[in-house]
Design a protein around this nucleic acid. Sequence first.
DNA 1: TCATAGCTACTTTTT
DNA 2: GTAGCTATGA
Length: 774
Amino acid sequence: MQDYLKGLNERQREAVITTEGPLMIIAGAGSGKTKVLTTRIAHLMNKGVDAFNILALTFTNKAAAEMKERVEHILANREARNLYIGTFHSVFARILRAEAHRLGYPNAFTIYDTDDAKSVVKAVTQELNLDVQHYKPNAVYNRISGAKNALVGAKEYTTDYYLQQEDMRANRPMIGHIYDAYQKRCFKNGAMDFDDLLFKMYELLKTFPEVLHKYQHKFKYILIDEYQDTNPAQYEIIKLLGAVSENVCVVGDDAQSIYSFRGATIQNILQFQKDYDEVKVIKLEQNYRSTQTILNIANEVIKNNKGQIPKTLFTENSAGEKIKLVRTMTDNDEGKFVADQIQEMRLRNHFKNKEFAILYRTNAQSRSFEESLRRANIPYTIYGGISFYQRKEIKDYIAYLRIIVNPKDEEALKRIINYPVRGIGKTSIDKAILAANERNISMWEVLEDAGASGFRAGTLQAVEEFVLMIKSFHSMLGVKNAYDVAFHVGKQTAFVKELFNDKSTEGVQRYENVQELLNSIKEFTETPASEESGEVGDKSLGAYLQQITLLTDADQKDPDADTVKLMTIHAAKGLEFPVVFVGGLEEGLFPNAMSINTRDELEEERRLFYVAITRAKGRLYLTYANTRYKFGQLQQADASRFIEEIPTEYLDKAFAGGGVKNQGSSKLMGSAFERMNRGFGGGEKSEKSFVSTLIGGNGKPKETAHTPSANFIPSDISKLEEGMRVEHQKFGFGNVVKLEGSSHNPVATIKFEANGEKKIMLNYAKLMIVPNAN
DNA sequence: TCATAGCTACTTTTT
DNA sequence: GTAGCTATGA
């Protein structure tokens, strides 16, 4: 037996050596899915399959990179670099880059990110004389995206009876027309959005049999990761590609399907078995990741969902610790608790920073955790913020590069035509767009022929200079490499100089980012071709631009850095951590208020909770807060219904503090509390109440607002003493009860008249000492 | 044509 | 709390 097969259990081994024919692997959380996939690839190659004939598709670049690395490790040679491993989007983008001309797109087509796409939606909506307030670009874009993921084109959309009925009922009958106009505009701009990468790939294979034939014979072995998250478009493409060899291996877990909002459907798992005559199904049910306790509650929770593929996850790991359930007063307390716990575990148990993960439902929740960690001096990394390439200065720079590569790219053009200011204002831009639409040419072509469009003399000159500049850049493309072109652009356009001259902290940062961008382009140009991209060594600027649009925040961060990781549960899929905190387990937040309208939605939220739980190897904390800031206002929240689905025998409520006493002391009390608070919502009831005293003076849905005195000036906090009377901008007047903390990070406990006792970090809060006190 | 101040609506998850 | 838009004056 080959060495690499030795570390596998029987089922895993079977999954690896069943190389021929359709195979479906149902892989429970932590059952060694990645190990199976990578070993399988290694096994194929060991059997003599050429790396060039293997296609492996994942959902994230991170997963693809990890897979490639592990295959390389098993094989201990450089052959793995020739594998076609990547995300659906990146692999299809690469194929489309070679074939796009067949569909009438430039091969150097631009990939529009969500921002670009929404901007186009907005533009065409306005051009159709529709109200953008009513046809919200966001909503319309989502609808279009949904259609494309289901392989519904614009024409089909506008002629489909049911879709039209649906839009009529929603009082948005023109969405189909916007879709059509949007699609045409993107085509005119030589651009594809994320969904087009799938949709157009499908169209390509359907329309050109010779292309289909080519790729069917190229990809003799196909592997799909996270199969439960594929949408119909992805499904159909795989079906086409795999139709000849039928060597399609899909790996998925229906219990971890969390992307239905993006068009994914579990149906694909069921359908897979119908599409091929003999599908072998292998279930991986032994979990190697988590403790018995964690696995038990995961199983208990998921039981509440109907219609699972029957399977029982088990583990031989020890029972481990109970799950810690923690209730805090506010979201800030929640953050502080987590930071404190991390601090303690680092000291007491010598955990490293990177062994902790803080997971949450929405990105907005990162703030309170971030603040607490920063104050506690614990290094952390937040995933899912805006990516490097989304920063304004980077987008601006990239817009220049985009317009050079693809002059038809109207979004890029609009972005930089007057940045830096060169006297081509909104009026002139609108005029150019109008002319472009009338003559059915691109905006760039209008500018090239500016003399014919009746610009004012001054504007005309500015436009001509601009066109000349871009053309001079463009002429470099064939001669110089991507880095040289980019560097030249930076030198010739005034905006980099402008950034350089801005000596504010942000300005310096922005300039550094631009340097970083240039470094990244340089690195791209200098990395040997086959090293990261499989085969064709396309080192052009166009290839670079297409690649970076598909990069996410996570791809630019080092997972091994010794930092606490903060991310959404979605982003955490596929990862594991020794200690996991799941925050914000509150009704309305998790399950999210947007997703409790149907049974299906709620079940997806529950699967999300399941994913969160199963990220933990050893310790799991579930936390929630009584009150939380939303829209900058304090809001009341009940505990998540998911907490009730965990049998109490697995829970350790010792950390739940005052809040839980209240919850646990009496069922009646709890429900009265709930009833009363519901009544509280809208009205301005009396400030003191039975409830608010019960839970510590903070049971009100809103903080008592305080308008700072007209002469409010923050005082020198070093003069603060216990007993002093102070004013806080938000909390109002109060008395200092206690001073504590180190001298460089003093903390005061202040009893506010209207808002009760609060701990205030003096380095951050602004307090005014009220002079006439004591 | 352009910079700024003030207003509004938004937050679910992502390639 | 903030990005992104509108109104305003220079």
